[in-house]
Amino acid sequence: MTTPTRPKPNARPRIKDKRSAILRAALAVFAEGGVNGVPMPALANKAGVGTGTIYRYFSSKDVLVNQLFREQRQFKRDLLFDGLDRTLDAEAQFRLVWQRMIRYSREHPDTYRFLEMQDHRPYLDSESRQLEQRFFAPLVSQYRDYQAQGVYRSDLRAEVLMAMVWGCFANLIKCEREGLLTLEQADLDAACTTCWSMLTG
């Protein structure tokens, strides 16, 4: 009679998709502690794999960070812009994207924080930087179109206007995350109206 094999004490449960587990863990720990502040053994422990397993899927931390960055940047683009009704006027589109940004920052806080931390960091490779450009180029083009149509103010470059709006939003979320304020829906709606007024002059 064969004796059933018992699992070893403290043995890790078997993980079917180790690559995905590593990426999920990386997102969580990088969002919390930054890329440079997280050693690979800590990441491995979070993922439930051995440190050597990470290197079977990603040859270095930089490779892992860039893969994670590209996947999460695409995820963000999809959440914010997929299915956006392009027949809406400029203000309606702006308000809709603003609400999507709020939902994104609250429902996916690790992704939001990770991407905010990684922008323009030196360890992003050329493919990640090109993806970043592809993300922002259509937005800048849209801002320029609205400027040409007289919808947006034209005394500031489109890139500057976009940076100002995103900066306002990012700082609101940062202050809430750090416990400096609690944002009610009325606050967010008023902030949206203020940013729209800033765009239109």
Score class of each variant (00 low, 15 high):
Phe135Lys: 15
Leu181Gly: 05
Leu80Gly: 07
Met40Pro: 06
Pro138His: 11
Ala21Ile: 00
Glu116Met: 10
Asn10Gln: 15
Gly48Gln: 01
Glu32Tyr: 05
Ala90His: 08
Val65Phe: 10
Thr3Pro: 02
Tyr123Phe: 06
Gly179Asp: 02
Arg113Asp: 02
Asp89Glu: 09
Pro39His: 02
Leu180Cys: 11
Met162Cys: 04
Ala11Pro: 05
Val160Met: 09
Ser105Arg: 13
Asp89Cys: 08
Thr200Arg: 15
Phe169Lys: 12
Asn10Tyr: 14
Gly33Arg: 15
Met164His: 04
Arg144His: 11
Met162Trp: 08
Ile22Arg: 14
Lys61Gly: 04
Ser197Ile: 03
Tyr143Ser: 11
Phe114Lys: 06
Glu71Thr: 07
Leu23Asp: 01
Arg19Pro: 01
Pro4Val: 01
Asp62Thr: 13
Cys175Gly: 04
Gly33Asn: 15
Leu139Ile: 14
Val140Ile: 15
Ala42His: 00
Arg129Glu: 14
Met117Leu: 14
Leu180Phe: 13
Met1Ile: 05
Phe58Ala: 07
Arg103Asp: 13
Arg95Cys: 06
Ala170Asn: 14
Lys61Thr: 02
Arg6Ile: 10
Gly150Ile: 04
Ala90Leu: 05
Leu139Asp: 02
Asp155Met: 10
Ser20Ile: 00
Ala26Gly: 06
Lys18Trp: 07
Ala191Asp: 01
Tyr55Gly: 02
Glu132Cys: 08
Ala21Val: 04
Asp125Tyr: 06
Val160Leu: 10
Arg56Lys: 14
Cys195Gly: 03
Phe136Ser: 13
Ala186Thr: 00
Ser59Arg: 13
Ile173Trp: 07
Phe81Trp: 10
Ala92Met: 05
Ala170Lys: 13
Leu172Arg: 12
Ala148Glu: 12
Met117His: 10
Asp119Gln: 11
Gly34Met: 11
Gln93Lys: 14
Glu176His: 14
Asp62Trp: 01
Leu188Pro: 01
Val49Ile: 12
Pro7Ala: 02
Asp110Gln: 14
Ser59Ile: 02
Glu178Tyr: 07
Pro4Glu: 05
Leu183Ala: 11
Asp85Trp: 07
Ala190Asp: 11
Leu131Ala: 15
Phe169Glu: 13
Ala21Cys: 06
Ala191Val: 00
Tyr146Gly: 00
Leu43Ala: 05
Pro41His: 02
Thr194Met: 13
Met101Pro: 00
Gln133His: 10
Glu176Met: 12
Pro39Cys: 06
